[in-house]
Amino acid sequence: MSFLEYAWSILPQLLEATQLTLLITAGAIALGFVAGVVLALSRVYGPPPVRGIAAGYIAFFRGTPLLVQITIVYFGLPQLVQAVGLPNPSRLLSAIVGFGLNSAAYQAEYFRGAVQSIQSGQMMAARALGLSRLEAIRHVILPQALRLVIPSWSNELIYTIKYSSLAYFLTLPELMFVGKKLALKTANTFQTYMVVAAIYLIIVMIVSWFLHRLEKRVRIPGLGAPAEHR
């Protein structure tokens, strides 16, 4: 069997597994976004104790390996949830939470950078008009920060896509896990992994392209950090 024929034959299974990969990625990045924005705003605008907690969270989740974190969540979440009296979370949910908490820390830092790069005059002008702090953040700071953070955020999304492969350790049937199973079944191990790698690469390229388009569309003349090259 030639390489292409082989590749074609295993594609259906791999693509099915890819769906799970994308699901994990989407869930994680969404959770990370919400938590990240909250963390970042707490760090910039919150009272000292809140700032400390946020900083501590970020330091922990950035300083320890993702693998260790998702394992902790995988074991810990069910225990935590049981203690509160809720039903057991699915493995998928544990994985998403694990990845999401990690992503939140990184997104928080990117977002904080974006917020802090906005000139202080913007906030002053908003307050001078009579906007409250919250309103100023909502109408003036946030719209600008969200645009400024796109390059870093794209980076984070790509990272999450690739590192979702660690869900392999949690025995979730995503791309890596299924890939390995197939690889060990046949003697075409190398080729199998090549196909798996290719799929990841293609996903990354497609996503990058989309994000580039997005950045172009929301671009406002005069707003923003100089464009980032990959």
Binding site: K162, Y163, S164, S165, L166, Y168, M176, G179, K180, A183, L184, A187, N188, T189, F190, Q191, T192, Y193, M194, V196, A197, Y200, L201, V204, M205
Partner: peptide, 21 residues
């Protein structure tokens, strides 16, 4: 290429991939 592939995949390629194929 080397930035686009997940680490796990890369390690597997070098270990089992080379070994078995």
């Amino acid at each position: 290429v080397f930035r686009g592939i997940p680490i796990l995949v890369l390690i597997m390629i070098f270990h089992s991939g080379l070994a078995r194929s």
